[in-house]
Structure formats: structure tokens, C-alpha cells
Amino acid sequence: MRRLNQNRTIVILVAPALIFMVLFFVLPLAFLLMQSFQTDDSVLTLQGYSDFLTSRTSRIIYWRTLRMGLLITGICTLIAYPASFVIARMPTRRRTFLLSLVILPLMTNAIARTYAWLIILGRQGIINESLQFFNLIDSPLRLIFTENAIVLGLTQLFLPLMVLPLVSSMENIPEDVVEAARSLGANRLMVFFRIIVPMSMDGLVLGATLVFTGSVTAYVTPAILGGTRTLLLSTLLYQRAVTLADLNRGAVVAVVMILTTLSVNLLLRLLRR
């Protein structure tokens, strides 16, 4: 009786949301998957995928997207790891304040954040103006519409996603463990690699997952800072789906994008175990 009752309660609690998600999330994605196996004249075909795999354009774009995702994740780790270590050991009030500053960029839209880079990297931007002021260059350099511009923009965009999980995992490392290790004669490097790194691994993997997924799928920053010659998967998807109105081949890119992020997520989740 009690058991039956409980099942009914669970159904009542979960069903409405479940129906919503199936209708407006799962079904559209299933439909998209179906579309990716279609072409104008064929109902079920792998044509779209084989085109994607054999086209030089999409191969370049795919590898560029992956490469930049890794690069951005790497840079974020290099900056965030030591900084998070310091922040995690600060007194609560200071730490709270600093963390709220980390959250701030997350709360602002990507356009505002990317826009700043136009001012920094433009022909009359800060970097070019200062380089010219010190006579280091004769004429302004082209800094936007390059891969580097995208890397900078996305690193700034996703740094918070690396810092937050790192800080929260490092906070949990008890000070006495470190003290104990030190008193047993471990030097700093040993403490770092034997205690800090393993104990913050969870945060690092989570952060890396978030940053990598974010970089591979971000649209606004590559669209503004990359131009049309430095396409990434996201900008390619938009071009195919909207500019070329080629829904089937757009669907192929979309599916490739999901597969990429999902497999990276799974891989990193295994690592976390």
C-alpha cells in the first residue's frame, strides 16, 4: 500500500516536467538526428556524414575547433590552478569577495564581454596604440579575425568555470593534512603533487569539462572575433543552417557537435572516478 502510494507520488511529481522535456527538448533533438540522415532527395542516407568527413573544409574546421578547445582549457588551467590555490586558502570574507568577482563575468552576456576585445585588439585599439606609441611597430597590426583573438576572448569567457570548481575542491583540503605532510619532511613540490593535485582532481576535471565544452560550442565570440575565414563548428553550423538554409547539412554539424561534447564529457567523467 505504502509502496503503491509512493509510486503515485513520484509520478505526480516527475511527470509534468518529464512531459515538458520530452516534448520540447528530446523530440526536437530526435527530429534533428533524423534530419541529419536525410538529403533533399533521399530519406535515409549517410551522405551528409560522408560529405562532412571527406570535405577538406569541414575537416579543417573540426580540428581547429578541437585544437582551440584544448588550448583554451590548457590556458585556463595554467592561470586558474595556482590562483585558485591561493584563493582557497584565504580567510572566508576575502575569499567570498574574490569569488563574487569571479562570478561577475558569468553574469554578463557574452556580447558585452566579447565587445571589449574589439576595443583592445582593434586597429585603433589599446594594443596597437601602445605599440605605436613606443615605436615598436610602424602601422597597426591585424589582431582581430585571427585564431588568437578567439582564444583570448574565450579564455576570458570561461576562466570562471575553471576557477569555481577548483576553489571549491581545494577548500576541502584540510590544512592539517598539508601541515602533517610538511612535518613529516615532505617538501613543497611533494606536498603539491602528492596531496594538492590528487585532492583537487575532481575540481580540475569538472572545470576542464566545462571549459572545453564551452569553447567547442561557443558562438558569439568566434562570430565576432573570428570573422568568416576562421570558422569553428558553431559558426559553420550557423552558416549552414541560416545563411545557406541547408537544414540537413546543418543537422549533420549539430550532431557532430553533440557527439564531440558528449564523448569528451564521458571521457572526463571516467577520469573522475
Binding site: 582593434g122 586597429r123 591585424r142 582581430i144 579575425f145 570573422g227 568568416t228 575565414r229 545563411t243
Partner: peptide, 18 residues
């Protein structure tokens, strides 16, 4: 440097001195 879709983008590119 990059290609454009809309004329407005061309204007911005000229404005930006790109």
C-alpha cells in the same frame, strides 16, 4: 581579411580600419 554578408558589416570593417 574576412568576408562580409551585410553591407553594415562592410561599414564597420571600414570604420575599424580593417
Amino acid at each position: 581579411v574576412t568576408s562580409y554578408i551585410r553591407s553594415s558589416e562592410l561599414t564597420t570593417l571600414v570604420q575599424q580600419e580593417e
